[in-house]
Computed example of a mutant assay.
Amino acid sequence: MDRLSVIGIVLAIAAITGGSVLKGAGLSGLWSPAAFVIVIVGTVASILVQTPIHTFRRALTIVRWVFRPPPSDRRAMIAQLVEWSTTARKQGLLGLEAQVQNLEDPFLRKGLQMVVDGVEPESIRQMLEIEMHGQSSRDLAAAKVYEGMGIYAPTLGIIGAVLGLMAVMKNLADPSKLGHGIAAAFTATIYGIGTANLALLPIASKLKGLVNSQTEEREMIVEGLIAIAQGENPRNIEARLSGYL
């Protein structure tokens, strides 16, 4: 569980609700069905038009990374690669065959299997880099879904405010309705700017950072596997991979 994300979401909610109460608007001032439809539903509609279905599905899948990032322990991975290198020098590459089936990560399993099969190091690098960059591109495109929503939401908030003011203008003859109507109009602006800056854009940035970190870790794995395939000294492998820490 990413505690910073949880704390951030809690503080964001507290900032909006607490600010509304302290300013005298109350919690009821934050609720507007019309603003919700215009901003939230409108933002989802916009991103659906922009995004291919497979990218949108991936975006829904990886959003959980904000609170539960993919497991990552680079020190443990380096230690594992160094151990495999030691085994390969003592027993040969076939000595690693028993390790392949125990790996849960498909990328790591595929790479180690190619090492065991004696594939040329340059071919291993090319195939793994193609897979690595392909997955990275798909995940970054999914993260940008939330970035796009963060761009659309404030604009739709302005549209909601304008529509609300248009409704107010129709009731100029009844001053008792003006205050409530104007307040409701600006609620849409709060929805748009608030969801963009307190949720959507931070989510996008967090996901892009996680994707880049995952790609860097896979680059480290590729370098380690290539070094094993080339029969390098385990100490040299450890020293080289330590630069990824």
Rank of each mutant, 00 (worst) to 15 (best):
I228T: 04
I9D: 06
A142C: 09
S176G: 15
K208C: 10
W31L: 13
I182P: 00
I40W: 07
R75H: 11
I159Y: 03
P202E: 05
G24R: 01
E83I: 02
M132H: 03
L22Y: 09
G134V: 09
A15T: 11
I237C: 03
N236V: 15
P52N: 08
P234Y: 00
A88H: 01
W84L: 01
L245W: 02
I182C: 07
S28W: 12
V10K: 02
I53P: 00
D117F: 01
W84H: 00
P106K: 03
L103C: 10
F36I: 08
T187I: 11
G24T: 07
I40S: 05
L128H: 02
S32G: 09
I16K: 02
G26T: 04
P121F: 08
M1Q: 05
L198F: 14
I158G: 10
P106E: 04
F107L: 04
S213N: 11
V10H: 03
K177Q: 14
E216D: 11
I130Y: 11
G192K: 02
N212F: 11
I221P: 04
L241W: 00
A88R: 00
R58T: 14
M220Y: 01
V100C: 13
W84Q: 00
A35Y: 03
P52A: 10
V168C: 09
E129P: 09
T195R: 01
A185L: 07
N102W: 06
I38E: 03
D105A: 04
T17E: 04
I151E: 10
W65H: 04
W84A: 06
T215R: 12
N233Y: 01
E97C: 01
E147Y: 06
A45Y: 06
L94V: 15
D174Q: 12
G18H: 06
V100N: 09
V82K: 07
Q91Y: 10
L81Q: 02
A196K: 01
L96S: 03
D2G: 05
G192E: 03
F56K: 01
G19I: 07
G194A: 15
R68D: 13
A229M: 06
K110Q: 15
S205V: 10
L245M: 14
I193Q: 01
S213I: 08
K144S: 15
K208P: 04
F36V: 13
A25L: 11
D105F: 05
V116G: 03
A184K: 09
L96V: 10
I7T: 11
D105M: 08
A161S: 12
R57G: 06
P71D: 07
Q50K: 15
L178V: 14
A153M: 09
L207F: 05
G95M: 10
E147K: 10
N102I: 09
E219C: 05
P202W: 07
A185K: 02
E217P: 05
L156R: 05
I9Q: 04
W84C: 02
G179C: 13
G134H: 10
G42Q: 03
T17W: 12
T195F: 12
R240N: 12
Q113N: 08
A34Q: 15
M166A: 12
A12V: 09
N212Q: 12
A141P: 06
S242C: 00
F67S: 06
I13N: 03
R109E: 14
M127Y: 02
I221H: 02
L207A: 09
L245Y: 01
T86Y: 01
E97G: 03
L156F: 12
